[in-house]
């Protein structure tokens, strides 16, 4: 270190010192890092149990130094329900992609939210099935080209992109819903704040929290990481507006 300087930011302790397998610029890494910062700062690493999905973040347990359970594709909400009920004193989060949470796992997600399970959902909406090679997801935008929508998503046969945050915010069991992104430093800071708020709500045991992170998939979108930031700003955010959708007491 240079003389007369101090460290003001470093890699969070609970993000395991290893190389994550994600493609360059992929927000999965950003969200893992922000979540570990929150758990470290709240000093709740030992009291937290995570569930990871099938999708690119299938190995999330190799990166977060937290007790974790892998779930079958789409079933994370059901697994997290069991963990939360058996360990009511723990902070339970379920980290899932859009193919996992909003396609194959729609039923589990909706019912867990409707029951108001004490789970913090971290929903990585990158509008695509990243892991399997960039197929259309329920969240793929109208007109967006993917390997299974080569002429662009056509709402006539695929419907419009699913707004999961708006759907789950309608359930009495859900306490807190916010849509965030990591496309700018300011938005990444808000993502961290939202994760922290969700963990605090979990402590109060007043219902489900649902944080939707508008994310990227440079490989599946066939663009550079920097270009993916423009797509988020110009295409995704206008359809999936950021901000608090529901919060306790409101």
């Amino acid at each position: 270190m240079r003389e007369g300087y101090e460290v003001v930011y470093k890699r969070p302790k609970s993000l395991i010192e290893t190389r994550m397998h994600y493609c360059p610029g992929c927000f999965h890494g950003t969200v893992h890092k922000l979540l570990m910062e929150v758990l470290d700062e709240m000093e709740i690493v030992e009291k937290t149990i995570g569930v990871c999905p099938v999708g690119c973040s299938v190995f999330a347990y190799d990166y977060m130094n937290v007790d974790m359970q892998e779930a079958a594709h789409g079933r994370a909400a059901a697994v997290a329900t069991a963990i939360s009920r058996l360990h009511p004193d723990k902070y339970v989060f379920s980290y899932q992609g859009d193919g996992d949470l909003a396609a194959i796992g729609t039923a589990e997600t909706i019912h867990a939210c409707n029951r108001g399970e004490n789970i913090v959902f971290i929903f990585i909406n990158n509008g695509i099935y990243g892991m399997t090679g960039g197929q259309m997801a329920p969240t793929t935008l109208k007109g967006q080209i993917t390997t299974t929508s080569p002429h662009g998503r056509d709402p006539i046969n695929a419907g419009m992109p699913l707004k999961m945050s708006e759907i789950v915010s309608g359930f009495d069991g859900v306490a807190y819903v916010e849509r965030v992104s990591c496309n700018t430093a300011g938005n990444a800071r808000k993502t961290k704040k939202a994760l922290e708020k969700a963990m605090k709500i979990s402590e109060q045991k007043i219902g489900t929290s649902f944080i939707e992170v508008i994310s990227n998939c440079p490989s599946g979108w066939k663009c550079t990481p920097v270009q993916s930031l423009d797509w988020i700003k110009d295409e995704q955010i206008p359809y999936f507006p950021l901000g608090v959708i529901k919060e306790p007491g409101k």
Partner: peptide, 22 residues
């Protein structure tokens, strides 16, 4: 200027930021 923007957006947590103490 030690604003930390770069470190916060880095998906791979590669960046350490130092700030002048005085």
């Amino acid at each position: 200027i030690a604003c930390k923007n770069c470190a916060i957006v880095c998906p791979d947590a590669c960046i350490t930021v130092y700030k002048k103490t005085v």
